[in-house]
Design a protein around this nucleic acid. Structure first.
Lengths: 213, 213
DNA sequence: TTAGCATTGTTATTATATAAACAATTGAAC
DNA sequence: GTTCAATTGTTTATATAATAACAATGCTAA
């Protein structure tokens, strides 16, 4: 599959399309129209068709898109054949939330390790995921072929954690700490800051309010 | 303050600038250059200056920006004078994570209520935040003047939760459930989906890997 | 006094993302 | 058959965001 330059937003939507398609498939439907997908995700049908065009798939004019084919194709694009292993660094509330979130989800991504520095958590199993001491990050990431790390440690430890991950050969990092990171260009970094999101909502909530009164 | 059309991304960065500025302020500095802020956030100095231009502030050519003035101005733009009250709906791991995250943070945003349907959680206090039964959402949002709701309930309950919030007069919603919502245009909606984020990281991690080997 | 330098503030350009417009196609109804 | 309605696929246009380019300023120091 030639995925030359898929826009970031398209990649994000592909993930959502796939989950939506599974939902529709479970209703014994075999085909779906762009506007049906669009309606479920509250976006425009044009957006859906454009994204599908970008991945080189074609639908049927009367029946729409073959759901199974589309699911398979999206899988070929965003998954690797044998899947990728994931580690959560920081087993606080957020780390636990992420692990239980993924529990039982059909996906090529498997959370297979958690790390923490709290002795009460180390060597225990949370929702099927073993917690190791942070000192063993390097060793376990190497041995278990973990390619993705989710950082949920406090801000003070985020930079050191990221460095360890990169040195251990990680390929992608999802950073939930409020501390912006800087990693080498061969590691993909995605950052999400809850405080920023909330302050953004607060700002536009205020503006909307002023506009409507 | 005339905040006609601040781009979404600028609003997000303003939130980050302010936190960065507080950090610098605590080091007894009174002024800061655009490249210093930029370096801490790993963005370009031009981006910083452009954002600051958009909010109508001017720095000093030799000393840079007055930190206190800039903090105050950002506050005037993104905060309301008396602050806004926030509720978390769904006191699972994610809800707890958000509450403990905000604990003790200096901010005009105050989480003052949580809601859940689990009797074990109802009427208990978590990190200073009282948990109420979901049946009282409408009443408490009205009475306590809560303007922002953070949805951390399971997907199945997300739509009903959002409807209740909107009917209760909420102004902004931050949706962490994987279920896309649809609210009336006078309510600001921000959605974040962890699975999508992780799948995105997986995709680009894979691509990077292919590119570098 | 004047040249040099680092910085800000602004405009212009490019890149990314969304939306609109519309031709092409297919099957159904008459 | 022929017309019609609905849908896809693609091109064009617009909106948003990031980057680059550069003039203006004011301090320093020769």
């Amino acid at each position: 599959m030639n995925t030359k330059h898929l826009p970031h937003k398209t990649v994000e939507r592909l993930s959502q399309y796939r989950r939506t398609l599974y939902l529709i498939l479970s209703k014994d439907k075999t085909h779906v129209f762009s506007h049906e997908i669009a309606q479920m995700l509250h976006i425009t049908p044009v957006q859906v068709r454009r994204d599908i065009m970008l991945i080189g798939y074609s639908g049927n004019l009367r029946k729409g898109y073959d759901i199974k084919e589309l699911i398979d194709l999206i899988g070929k694009i965003i998954d690797t054949e044998k899947g990728q292993n994931v580690a959560v660094i920081g087993l606080g509330n957020l780390g636990k939330a992420i692990i239980s979130y993924f529990k039982g989800k059909r996906t090529k991504l498997k959370i297979i390790a958690a790390f923490d520095i709290n002795p009460d958590k180390i060597n225990r199993v949370y929702d099927g995921v073993q917690c190791y001491p942070a000192s063993r990050i390097h060793e376990i990431i190497k041995n278990e072929d973990i390619t993705i790390g989710i950082i949920t440690v406090p801000a003070e430890q985020a930079v050191a954690t990221a460095e360890t991950l990169v040195l251990s050969g990680i390929k992608g990092i999802l950073n939930y700490s409020p501390k912006p990171l800087n990693v080498s260009p061969n590691v993909f970094l995605e950052e999400y800051d809850m405080i920023t999101s909330l302050e953004k909502v607060a700002f536009y909530a205020k503006k909307n309010d002023e506009r409507f009164k």
